[in-house]
Design a protein around this nucleic acid. Structure first.
Length: 283
DNA sequence: TGCCAGGCGACGC
DNA sequence: GCGTCGCATGGC
């Protein structure tokens, strides 16, 4: 696609591909070696060569205002990695595998919906459902005229847009039994019943309590939304894969689950599992 | 073809 | 509080 602007920045030990395909989000697509997607209403294609990142379709202001924060570029991940490995030497290898993974600062509403949809579901199907929702109900990104026909050129639908969608339509889009959850949470959010700003900065157990009060949001979905959508790096989502890893590799327990950067440690474990799936398949 | 999926709510005890 | 079960649907 012809994109009018591009901005290049350098960043050591960051991998945009590892970050955007590490299970934190379900929207980015890869075309011609670039990661393509929309967040905060802007479309971008991100290419990487070594430490050089190029944001096609983004000017410097877009990078500063959106992508720098979305990709969490200002945090000291080297320091966090050293801290995590210091607490848990068994994570040395996975921390190095996943050294380039940052925690995404996604829009809270998108993260919440995405992980409601993700429950008891597989990633290709989750991606399909979210793509159809965005294409049907999400606004096209203002800077991506040519991407209008594709889901990755659309914003995630607002609570208001989804609140107007009948539950049955969510079913037709493939949501299955999660359709009821999505319909209800959309109505709640659209009527102001979810205080996203408060959840961002509330004491963590209070933030958890708020999300757990929503139908269709259990411990796993709440932890994912908090970690990937509310910037709460102390959260540690436990899914079936992580549970298996904890049972096999960390059966003696680990202090990491309660550390300030538990979510980063979880990402290291998750990345490790992804690279060695045969070790963790269900028996 | 079945089994499984980045789980949750309802229910019974 | 804890264990069990049903749930929609498509990928593999």
């Amino acid at each position: 696609m012809a994109l009018q602007y591009c901005t290049t920045v350098a960043h050591k030990r960051f991998s945009v591909a590892d970050t955007l395909t590490s299970g934190q989000c379900f929207r980015w697509t890869e075309h011609d070696g670039r990661l393509c997607g929309t967040a905060f209403g802007r479309y971008v294609e991100i290419g990487q060569r070594g430490d050089q990142l190029t944001f096609y379709g983004a000017d410097e202001s877009d990078y500063e205002k959106i992508w720098r924060r979305y990709l969490d570029m200002d945090r000291d991940y080297d320091g966090i990695s050293r801290l995590v490995v210091g607490m848990e030497p068994r994570l040395t290898d996975s921390a190095s595998y996943a050294a380039g993974v940052h925690i995404l600062m996604q829009e809270p509403w998108e993260a919440l919906c995405s992980f409601i949809i993700s429950q008891n579901n597989n990633i290709p199907r989750i991606r399909g459902i979210i793509a159809r929702l965005c294409l049907q109900y999400g606004e096209p990104a203002a800077n991506a005229e040519a991407a209008r026909e594709k889901a990755d050129g659309h914003a995630f639908p607002t609570p208001q847009a989804l609140a107007a969608v009948p539950e049955e339509t969510f079913r037709l889009l493939g949501c299955g039994y999660r359709a009821a959850y999505l319909a209800e949470v959309s109505k709640t959010a659209a009527s102001g019943g979810i205080d996203f700003d408060y959840i961002k900065k509330a004491p963590i157990d209070e933030a958890r309590k708020r999300l757990l009060s929503l139908k269709g949001v259990g411990p796993k979905v709440a932890e994912c939304a908090l970690l990937y959508g509310f910037g709460r790096l102390e959260c540690f989502p436990v899914d079936v894969w992580i549970r298996r890893a904890l049972e096999t590799e960390f059966s003696g327990g680990t202090a990491l689950l309660k550390c300030q950067y538990a979510g980063v440690a979880q990402q290291y474990i998750f990345e490790y599992i992804r690279r060695h799936p045969d070790r963790f398949k269900k028996k």
